[in-house]
């Protein structure tokens, strides 16, 4: 990764830190308590942004990278690493979505958990992508693992709308999109709207930063693997050379015409392990 990318990562990280701190400050001290829900409403500055990152940014990105990996023309381990990073961060955000939702639900509805559409499909999503991470931990050739994981992510992603839809048909008592209710003007006003908007920005920045960092870790791990591979390749190549050098080439009278004779293979440079694959 070039120095510029690292610099960008740092800037985004800094911006994420600042916006998050600002959100916390605005959310806890500046904005007034809400009319009905009182100080509980302050959770709204974080919960929807976290859910937005988990459900749309993370898994959208994962699905997109999976498609691009599986498509022959754009196949590159770049997409695999990106997808894996997105899922991993997404799992954390999904878990946070459930936790913050639960914290909200307990005082509001009097229960930690209700079997509503949103909660249930979010929980199922979490399990689906935990499966992805489990699959990813199974040791395999990078190419093989990438393929497997891309399919798993894609299948899981396809499942999400079906899950959401089917659970939605269950009787639901969850509040429907308070902010993005079509046809209504924003119900949240003034400083609260600002704070919530900032929350979205902050969480998105945190997400981007985490993915970038996670990507870098993944890249470095791959690079170590590649270096090890180069070493083992040249070792193996040399193993063949010792045998060939020990051999005295004999000029056989009945050499097959057209066939390469002798030990042409013994000389020449050690080949590239992954010619142009990455």
């Amino acid at each position: 990764m070039t120095a510029r990318v690292r610099w960008v990562t740092r800037v985004i990280g800094g911006a994420a830190l600042v916006t998050t701190a600002l959100t916390v400050w605005l959310g806890l001290w500046v904005t007034p308590p809400a009319k009905v829900m009182g100080t509980l409403a302050r959770l709204l500055y974080l919960h929807p942004p976290i859910a937005w990152v988990a459900l749309y940014c993370a898994f959208g990105l994962a699905a997109l990278s999976s498609v691009l990996y599986l498509w022959r023309r754009t196949r590159s381990l770049f997409w695999d690493r990106l997808g894996a990073s997105a899922v991993e961060v997404g799992v954390v955000f999904t878990a946070l979505t459930l936790v913050t939702g639960s914290l909200w639900g307990r005082p509001t509805w009097g229960v930690w958990w209700t079997w509503t559409a949103r909660l249930t499909s979010t929980a199922l999503l979490l399990v689906l992508f935990l499966g992805y991470l489990a699959l990813r931990r199974v040791p395999a050739d990078p190419d093989v693992r990438a393929r497997r994981c891309a399919v798993a992510a894609l299948v899981a992603f396809v499942d999400v709308p079906i899950v959401a839809f089917s659970v939605d048909w269950w009787q639901t008592l969850h509040q429907r999109g308070t902010v993005l209710n079509p046809g209504l003007t924003l119900k949240v006003h003034g400083s609260m709207a600002w704070t919530m908007g900032l929350g979205f920005l902050a969480m998105t920045l945190v997400f981007v930063w985490m993915v970038l960092v996670r990507y870098r870790v993944e890249l470095l791990a791959d690079r170590i693997g590649d270096e090890e591979l180069e070493v083992s390749l040249s070792e193996r190549w040399a193993e063949g050379a010792t045998v060939a050098d020990a051999a005295v080439p004999l000029a056989l009278p009945d050499a097959v015409p057209g066939a390469p004779t002798g030990r042409g293979a013994a000389v020449g440079p050690v080949p590239e392990p992954l010619g142009g694959r990455r």
Binding site: R236, W237, A238, E239, G240, A241, T242, V243, A244, A247, L250, L252, D254, A255, V256, A259, P260, T261, G262, R263, A265, A266
Partner: peptide, 24 residues
């Protein structure tokens, strides 16, 4: 075989014209 290849270390280290027939 018409031809014999000897592999070692993951490559063909040695090749010989082979021998159908006992003498060859």
């Amino acid at each position: 075989a018409d031809r014999v290849a000897v592999m070692s270390g993951g490559r063909v280290a040695e090749e010989r014209a082979g021998g159908r027939g006992a003498a060859a």
